[in-house]
Amino acid sequence: MTTIRDFMTEDHRRCDDVFAEVEQAVASGDWNAAAESFGRFHCGVLQHFTTEESLLFPTFEEKTGMYMGPTQVMRGEHVQMRELMAAAAESLAAKDADGYSGNAETLLIMMQQHNMKEENILYPMCDQHLAEESEALLPGLQASLAEAGK
């Protein structure tokens, strides 16, 4: 059976792949391809955040009563990553390869350490506490994440 951890982790990996696509395009100086890939990356990550903040986290908080716990920390890190993505988008629009590389590098590490906390700590907690709800929750998560592709 698919767990919340497996499902959300898969979406992390999808975002990583598109991040790498942008970097490849910037490295080869193809700014149009970079802008197109970055658009998909930005959209995918923001939709992932929205899915968590509007669906997964509230369900977890309601069930466990932990409103100021890990979900709050994750929301704070989402804010930081939104800022880094905005800075990277600016560098990309200005065709500033060095600026993009600095912002993207920082975003990558921020994103990866955030993912690690979610994949190793928060998602397993979700699976543990939301065992009863997960059957109904997973299709909702799937539908919400799919919004990014539209």
Binding site: E83, A87, S101, G102, E105, I109
Partner: peptide, 8 residues
């Protein structure tokens, strides 16, 4: 206040 990125 914006922090300098890693390369900076």
């Amino acid at each position: 206040v914006v922090a300098p990125n890693m390369k900076a």
